[in-house]
């Protein structure tokens, strides 16, 4: 296609800006990979290694992978339960005058920077966990999940709660959108058969919106996996693999945040960059799946 000069320049500018997306993407992987080469020498043993002791030159990433997956998974389970509940409230139950206000407030709250939530976590939530939740859960200490304790309240449980508070608004917002897309006449059809609200939600709304809700959950999971500050501030930062969420733990993002500037020696630094690469791969995969689900659902809707 023939173009005049102004149009050519314009196209070139836009084209090269877009190319920069591809360049940056390639560069990101190249940088993380090339700077973590030393740690991949032993291959999978970096990922499966149980011990992280930089002083002894031991770099096993598994405690962080474990802590990341454990906290994010518990948090997303709680967030799904609560987020879907909120979405049902906002789309089906609340009087319409309240719906807009409450969903705006929830959207607004989702914008609070995570470092502020971390600050609150240290000074409000951790003491609350130590003084109230921990004694309560210790009655269940015969279950390994609740068998430990901390003096500070900085534990995986605290991290899970903080993540839940951060991710639930996201899940709730997407689930609400999904529920709002349920055609009104489908609901009315079931109501006109004498169904209760529970039955309409259970048999029409949830099945119809299931894919959208699931996409939102996956996106929330991606967010929980990569969340750094709030978790770093409350998880206790201990690279152990404990079955109990009442014990402190560590996540991939947190160990990078804490140790990166003081990492001495190439292997130490490359181990942290290797963890960054792993974290990136996990989050991107999760995020991609979530986006594809949401996207597919929007195409159908």
């Amino acid at each position: 296609m023939k173009r005049a000069r102004g149009d050519r320049v314009f196209w070139l500018l836009a084209f090269f800006s877009s190319l920069s997306v591809i360049v940056m993407f390639t560069l990101l992987f190249y940088e993380l990979l090339s700077n973590s080469v030393p740690i991949w020498k032993d291959g999978m043993s970096f990922i499966t290694g149980m011990v992280w002791d930089p002083l002894k030159g031991l770099f096993g990433a598994f405690p962080f992978i474990y802590g990341t997956l454990l906290t994010a998974t518990f948090a997303i389970l709680l967030s799904t339960f609560l987020g879907v509940g909120i979405a049902i409230f906002l789309s089906e139950i609340a009087p319409s005058s309240l719906r807009v206000i409450i969903s705006s407030i929830i959207e607004l709250i989702a914008a609070i920077p995570s470092v502020i939530i971390g600050l609150w976590g240290i000074f409000v939530l951790a003491p609350f966990v130590r003084d109230n939740l921990q004694p309560l859960l210790q009655h269940l200490s015969f279950i390994p999940l609740f068998s430990g304790k901390t003096l500070s309240g900085l534990s995986m449980l605290t991290a899970i709660l903080v993540l839940t508070f951060m991710v639930t608004p996201i899940v709730a917002a997407i689930a609400r959108e999904a529920l709002l897309m349920v055609p009104e006449d489908l609901k009315e059809a079931l109501y006109s058969l004498g169904a209760t609200r529970y039955e309409v939600v259970r048999h029409v709304c949830i099945p119809y919106a299931r894919q959208g809700i699931f996409g939102g959950v996956i996106l929330g999971y991606g967010r929980a996996l990569g969340e750094t500050m709030a978790v770093t501030m409350v998880i206790g930062n201990t690279p152990s693999i404990s079955a109990s969420i009442l014990n402190p733990g560590y996540t991939m993002a947190a160990v990078i945040a804490n140790e990166f500037t003081e990492a001495t020696g190439d292997v130490y630094l490359s181990a942290l960059i290797g963890i960054a690469l792993l974290l990136l791969l996990i989050s991107l995969a999760v995020n991609l799946v979530g986006r594809m689900i949401v996207w597919k659902w929007q195409q159908e809707g």
Binding site: V21, I22, M24, F25, L27, L28, E31, L32, N35, G222, L225, G226, E227, T228, A253, I256, A257, F260, L272, I273, A276, L279, L280, S283, L284, V286, N287, L288, R291
Partner: peptide, 19 residues
């Protein structure tokens, strides 16, 4: 790629800028 990029954890962006 842009959509995928949106899933980059913020700490990883820091590591990238560092290296």
């Amino acid at each position: 790629l842009n959509d995928t990029f949106m899933g980059t954890p913020s700490i990883v962006a820091g590591v990238f800028a560092y290296t």
